[in-house]
Design a protein around this nucleic acid. Structure first.
Lengths: 203, 203
DNA sequence: CATATTTTATACCGTTTCGCATAAAAATCT
DNA sequence: AGATTTTTATGCGAAACGGTATAAAATATG
């Protein structure tokens, strides 16, 4: 019969935590340059445990990507609070993004997806798929807010929500790349502001 | 005394050609995943020859980055022909970029710099420097054309050339990422058009 | 308490990695 | 022609790589 606890020796780790630690390694080094030794050390799991729980290196990386994607969507929907004006929403999206992108020990890490998944996208179809899907989901979430903005009159009636959403994302992609390239916070914040102005109209 | 030809056995290869072939490998696989065996095969040079001529793998990669940067700047300045209207210039920049980004055997390769250098930017300071410098040079070239546009009245007098240039670049960064993520040509061309509209004003 | 099941720990395996040592080959210089 | 210089070719070698075999440890089941 079934029992609550499953049989056998219990795991001495939390899968979510382990994926988070692995994500840090992948974020700094990229997929290819991250060795299983490093991942094993960072997660405090032996390699056999890593394999038993997550499969091979690519699957662990895909889990980390998926985890990041979910976190990002959560942050995005927080930022797009419909109780606030569109302009504030968009500014909040960029501010929250920059907070993440500018974090890092040796240098600003940028966006985990854009900075590391792009490099592998040609050779690993599954990584390319996650990357593409993530970008689209992001666009779609912003698009919904843009549609609401058109309904409410925050944007002109002839504005195309899908197009504006992709442009809003474009600014964020640029913030991601530039952060990792070493741009200063000031430069990036200025780009964010001008992006808001361009899309929402100058204040 | 000195002679035109230098002493010793002459090289059986052209350095520029070799860097170009290496660039193809790095572009598809990224820096870390590109092995010296693969590079040696693609360039048809033995590893000792590669080392003698270019140094280690990172230096060869930096040469490839620099080569790409120069090519890109050439393409950019062709596209920004001041004899043509700003709108056509910008459309041309994006069209030429997409032509490059959408090329590839198994999948669209995107931008060599953005797709592969970002991944290494944290661990390799020199790569980060080249990446940052390249993005800035690109912005600056567009900025110059924007300044001319303000002088000529193609843009309103209160338009800020530096800001507009960074936004124009932002759209291109997004094209680069999205191309590598598997977006269709149509989607990317639509983004390019809306970018032109947003920056130059809707036609 | 014995058995079954799952996770952990150690150690290992074959392969690939980067980089170089060594020597042959091809040119110029004296 | 012989010496010198530089490039090419072969192949090595130590280290790191991803992945796994094996056995001990820790739990649930009967």
């Amino acid at each position: 019969m079934k029992s609550e606890k499953k049989q056998g020796r219990p795991r001495a780790f939390d899968a979510k935590t382990v994926i988070g630690r692995a994500r840090e390694v992948f974020w700094d080094k990229g997929f290819s340059a991250a060795s299983l030794d490093t991942l094993s050390a960072a997660t405090k799991l032996n390699r056999p445990s890593l394999y038993g729980a997550f499969g091979d290196k690519e699957e662990l990386y895909l889990d980390a990507l998926e985890d990041y994607r979910e976190d990002s969507m959560d942050v995005l929907s927080e930022a797009l609070d419909p109780a606030l004006p569109l302009r504030e929403n968009l500014a909040s999206v960029y501010a929250r993004a920059l907070k993440i992108y500018l974090h890092g020990d040796t240098a600003a890490r940028g966006c985990f997806l854009i900075s590391t998944a792009t490099a592998e996208a040609i050779q690993h179809a599954r990584i390319r798929e996650v990357l593409g899907r993530s970008l689209n989901d992001f666009d779609d979430a912003i698009k919904e807010r843009m549609e609401l903005a058109v309904e409410r009159g925050e944007l002109p009636t002839d504005a195309d929500p899908a197009t504006l959403a992709r442009l809003a994302s474009a600014v964020m992609h640029s913030l991601a790349v530039r952060a990792r390239a070493g741009d200063t916070r000031e430069t990036l914040e200025a780009l964010a502001r001008s992006g808001v102005d361009l899309i929402c109209g100058r204040k």
